[in-house]
Write a protein that binds this DNA or RNA. Structure first.
Length: 156
DNA sequence: TAGGCCATCTGGTCCT
DNA sequence: AGGACCAGATGGCCTA
């Protein structure tokens, strides 16, 4: 009963209403940190000074896993497993960072595409990633139930 | 000012 | 060996 089309639509509407999306944030415009350039030769460091910080910090030494910048997961993240440290140099670390940025960029592109697919009111606020996922779940449930209802009502 | 959201860095793990 | 994926940590921005 909770998954009837009416219930789903009601849930979707209440969900959307609950999110209080009637205020328009400046986030709809591209923030500097979102202006990911696909051209690695562009002067992106001006937008991402932290990248330059990393370069300055790492310029003179090799980055070794387990070294000072190691965080919580390091040696005690997965107890019981003996692990060899994978030694990478600055160039490899920076290349990995670039790949990770591109990966996250493509992930966000997918989220943007999903945002365009789910129905929303004339929102002034962009859906967050978690809200996009939740709304998509509700929307898919609603459409599924609608299809089932139509197939039951259609003459055999 | 606290909390939510996000971008980024980072190191561990899996896979080719 | 190296790339992809993942998740923790961190810091910035924004809103209530």
């Amino acid at each position: 009963a909770a998954h009837s089309p009416a219930a789903c639509l009601s849930a979707a509407c209440s969900f959307v209403t609950d999110m209080n999306l009637m205020e328009f944030p400046q986030r709809c415009t591209l923030e500097p940190m979102q202006q990911v350039d696909n051209d690695p030769s562009s002067p992106s460091d001006q937008l991402r000074p932290w990248s330059r910080d990393l370069q300055d910090e790492a310029r003179t030494e090799l980055l070794v896993m387990g070294a000072p910048r190691c965080y919580s997961r390091g040696a005690h993240g997965h107890p019981g497993k003996s692990k060899r440290r994978r030694i990478i140099n600055v160039v490899q670390r920076q290349a990995a960072n670039v790949r990770e940025r591109k990966r996250m960029f493509s992930l966000n592109e997918a989220f943007d595409e999903l945002r365009r697919k789910v129905p929303t009111f004339a929102y002034e606020k962009r859906l967050s990633r978690i809200d996009t996922l939740r709304l998509a779940i509700v929307y898919i449930s609603f459409m599924t139930d609608l299809l089932e209802q139509n197939s039951q009502n259609s003459p055999a």
